[in-house]
């Protein structure tokens, strides 16, 4: 059986909120290392990969591998019933028909119990190769969100160029063009504002802004976002969570013929 107690229901709410517009029906794969999710969007352009490690829960118990097939719209409806500082416990039997969600108020004696019917989801699992990326950029998540939202007003696509000069986000559209360049930057008082650029080779790639704006819905999960790029491979957009947990998005590039 699965029993996973999360001190902050809000964390799970934010994760589901961040991915629900990208993927609809997902298997939450539970085993003794934690709860993982991998899902592609309908057009097979983007991939979501979430890992909530067992250390993020207290207690965490999962005796055998259980796949919880859940519709994220249904899950969102139930998670709305949790208050942000509630404690969340996920429960399921070994061969479950339902997943149970228990919300407990830390301050009062209220206990709310909900269940969601599970679905049989035949999901393709993709192997993501270990990649030595040509460029890795860590930057404030809010800054990345701002850049993507600003540039989508002008164009469908953004080119991300990483060179010795820094990282340049540039777009061209019908009304004109836009570009934002960031350089490495250390803020001693506010390290969450740091921009760190590690580059082993110059990288230049083009991506759909629609997807990047969608990924940025995860901005509330982490102060910083990490962008990993290599020429002609998918972009990795990573939001680190506590206890070595993470929410990762992969986006296939646009490539000229």
């Amino acid at each position: 059986m699965l029993e996973a107690r999360l001190e902050q229901a809000n964390l799970f709410k934010k994760v589901v909120d961040a991915i629900k517009d990208l993927v609809q029906d997902c298997n939450f794969d539970c085993n003794d290392s934690g709860i993982a999710l991998q899902a592609m969007d309908n057009s097979h352009v983007a991939l979501v990969s979430m890992m909530l490690r067992s250390e993020s829960f207290a207690p965490f118990r999962c005796d055998r591998n259980i796949a919880l097939g859940i519709n994220l719209t249904s899950l969102t409806k139930v998670l709305k019933c949790a208050q942000s500082d509630d404690i969340l416990t996920l429960k399921a039997e070994d061969a479950p028909d339902v997943v149970e969600l228990v919300f407990e108020s830390a301050e009062s004696d209220r206990i709310s119990e909900y269940s969601i019917k599970l679905m049989d989801i035949d999901q393709e699992h993709l192997g993501i190769p270990e990649t030595d990326y040509g460029a890795t950029i860590s930057m404030p998540a809010a800054e990345f969100q701002r850049i993507c939202r600003d540039l989508i007003a002008l164009s469908e696509s953004v080119s991300i160029e990483c060179s010795k000069e820094g990282v340049k986000f540039a777009c061209q559209g019908d009304i004109g063009s836009g570009a934002v360049t960031l350089r490495q930057h250390t803020n001693v008082d506010k390290p969450e504002m740091n921009v760190e650029i590690n580059m082993s080779e110059p990288v230049s790639l083009t991506f759909s802004l629609k997807y990047l704006v969608n990924f940025c819905k995860a901005s509330g999960l982490s102060n910083q976002v990490r962008l990993c790029l290599s020429n002609e491979v998918p972009l990795l957009v990573e939001y680190s969570l506590a206890n070595n947990s993470h929410l990762r998005f992969y986006l296939a590039p646009k490539i000229g013929d």
Binding site: L126, S208, L251, A252, G256
Partner: peptide, 14 residues
Amino acid sequence: TQNQRSILGFFSKK
């Protein structure tokens, strides 16, 4: 012109 690739072209099915 730049064409949108599929993620399936990069990651293999397990």
